[in-house]
């Protein structure tokens, strides 16, 4: 091991969840990652392992990834018990191997939640998050026929608050980290963004009601305020947006919009 320390490269032991398909049983398999430099990203380290597997005639590990610069939200694996590995504001693709030591054993598991069925190995289906947005995660603005962008001044603080919420990349780490498999941070951020902006306030009561319904319908759990979601979020989305969603819910309830919406069959 010390032989590697001299040139800075590492050998690591990976314990990876392998599962052939959604309804197949899965199990952990152990692999060696050899000659990894501190500059390898975590996914590039996985690439190295996969290249070895292919050459050995084995099936490479399937994992989701795309932009590899921390913005598309596609990469998703739980590293040593925490989504994206648990380094502050870091997606898996931006996690570099300098955070690990030679000889480390690394457990790699897929997002686990009822709402995210496994597709293969580390790849899961996060369509449930899209369903939440489809439920009401938008402002019903038609294309064309909208007022000038400056017609409604929006205070800098309001704009900044909305932007803080809007930074969510939809990776689902919050759901994966939540002991209850809840999507409250994801939904709360979207609800807060639109509830804060004047353009979104018109539909705010219906939005919060519909999105909460959709969470239950799509298999997400309830919030018990562990705040594990914020800690695991690669964009550091604040749980204050969950509080905001709760507030919007209470407001909607007070306005009796929620009940009306439930009657109209959503």
């Amino acid at each position: 091991m010390s032989a590697h320390a001299s040139d800075g490269t590492m050998n690591l032991k990976l314990i990876v969840w392998r599962q052939k398909g959604p309804n197949e049983p899965g199990k952990f398999e152990t692999y060696e990652a050899r000659n990894i430099t501190p500059h390898h990203s975590f996914l590039e380290m996985m690439d190295v392992v996969n290249e070895d597997l292919i050459k050995e005639g084995k099936e490479p590990i399937v994992f989701d990834h795309d932009c590899r610069e921390g913005i598309c939200g596609m990469c998703s694996a739980v590293v040593n018990g925490v989504p994206h590995g648990g380094f502050k504001r870091t997606t898996l693709c931006q996690l570099h191997m300098r955070k690990f030591k030679d000889g480390d054993a690394i457990y790699i598991e897929p997002w686990r939640s009822r709402a995210f069925p496994i597709v293969k190995d580390l790849m899961v289906d996060r369509g449930a998050l899209d369903k939440l947005i489809q439920a009401a995660g938008y402002i019903s603005a038609h294309t064309g026929g909208v007022p000038d962008g400056n017609a409604t001044p929006i205070g800098k603080r309001t704009a900044d608050y909305a932007m803080d919420a809007a930074e969510c990349i939809g990776c689902g780490a919050c759901v994966a980290a939540c002991p209850n498999g809840a999507a409250m941070l994801f939904a709360g951020a979207k609800i807060s963004q639109y509830a804060e902006l004047p353009q979104g306030q018109v539909e705010a009561p219906e939005r919060v009601a519909a999105m909460i319904n959709a969470m239950a319908e799509n298999g997400f759990g309830n919030c018990t305020n562990h705040y594990e979601c914020q800690a695991a979020c690669p964009k550091g989305i604040d749980v204050k947006f969950i509080a905001r969603m709760n507030r919007e819910f209470v407001k909607a309830l007070a306005q009796d919009k929620v009940g009306a919406l439930a009657q109209s069959g959503k």
Binding site: V78, G81, G86, H226
Partner: peptide, 13 residues
């Protein structure tokens, strides 16, 4: 909603 737990149990918060 969380039928399977992680092999490694680690919490940040």
């Amino acid at each position: 909603a969380k039928p399977t737990k992680y092999k490694v149990e680690r919490y940040l918060k």
